[in-house]
Design a protein around this nucleic acid. Sequence first.
DNA 1: GACCAGGCACATC
DNA 2: GATGTGCATGGT
Length: 216
Amino acid sequence: MRAGGVREFYEALMAAYGPQGWWPGQSATEIVIGAILTQNTNWGNVERAIENLRSAGMIDWAALRDVEHHRLAELIRPAGYFNVKARRLKNFVNWLWGHYGGDLERLRDVPLETLREKLLSVNGIGRETADSILLYALERPTFVVDAYTARFALRHGLIDEDADYERLKAVFEEGLERDVQLFNEYHALLVAVGKRHCRPTARCEGCPLEGFEHRT
DNA sequence: GACCAGGCACATC
DNA sequence: GATGTGCATGGT
């Protein structure tokens, strides 16, 4: 049994699962909305909410700017925490209109770290949501950390228990070339293995990383 | 019916 | 700075 590294784990996961193709064929607008709606929520519920928004013509920054809170909350109800998320979506929309004329494309001119800070200043946009927006909607090379990432990294000895979000993010970014497609697939693969094997209580049988050292 | 799911802000110590 | 709590739906 040998200890693995960030790169080796990626190779093993990719060999086992193949490209995940996360968030393909959807608009950047839809991805941003999804990133906010999926906070602590099953993706299937988010899809229902997004479908409601689509039917209502709300995958649109002007429409989202003009819609009433109550109406927006009803549309996104299936995603859970609908009042909180309606407010957070509105916060983002108001920020986007206030600073960038409601145009996501204008964010592309802002340097990555600067933009990350700006996103984090919006109430309701935390680290994971900001990084998801940056990576998946704006195609910026920033690594997305979530609950799956943390559990995986801890079990496979990449971090210790007290590592925070930024530390976790740094471990992956330092172990890889700074590449959008790579970060995209890696995060998606971590979710894939997290759902199948690297679960809170599972014994990890059949995990593609069984050959590597593993903490229990 | 308990537990979980691609978090975050806020209160309190 | 760490820890606890509210927010809410739908699947297993």
